[in-house]
Design a protein around this nucleic acid. Structure first.
Length: 84
DNA sequence: CGTATGACGTGCA
DNA sequence: GTGCACGCCATAC
């Protein structure tokens, strides 16, 4: 696995509960602030349950997508009160 | 290496 | 606020 992908998963896995980060923030913390596009790509292929990818949303506040279903992602975020 | 794809971001009409 | 085009990076082929 490439360092960047690993870093992204690591960063997402460190996201505290009821907290959300934008794809941009994740990419920035991963070391490549310009790879926000790749972040979504990586998370889309990542099925690791240790990585709460549902905590990662778009910079405009929209939930974005989810490999388990967008509706499911929204549901989880609402359940955790991570979004308004 | 070149092309296509995708859970994005920004700019502009 | 909405819709569209372009740019961006990693990955698959």
């Amino acid at each position: 696995m490439a360092e960047f992908s690993k870093k992204v998963l690591q960063v997402v896995a460190k996201i505290p509960k009821s907290k959300t980060l934008t794809y941009r923030q994740v990419a920035e913390m991963a070391g490549n602030p310009k790879a926000y596009r790749a972040v979504g790509n990586i998370l889309a292929k990542n099925f690791n349950p240790k990585v709460p990818c549902h905590r990662v949303i778009k910079s405009n506040g929209q939930p974005g997508g989810y490999n388990r279903g967008e509706q499911n992602k929204i549901k989880i975020l609402k359940s955790e009160n991570a979004i308004k």
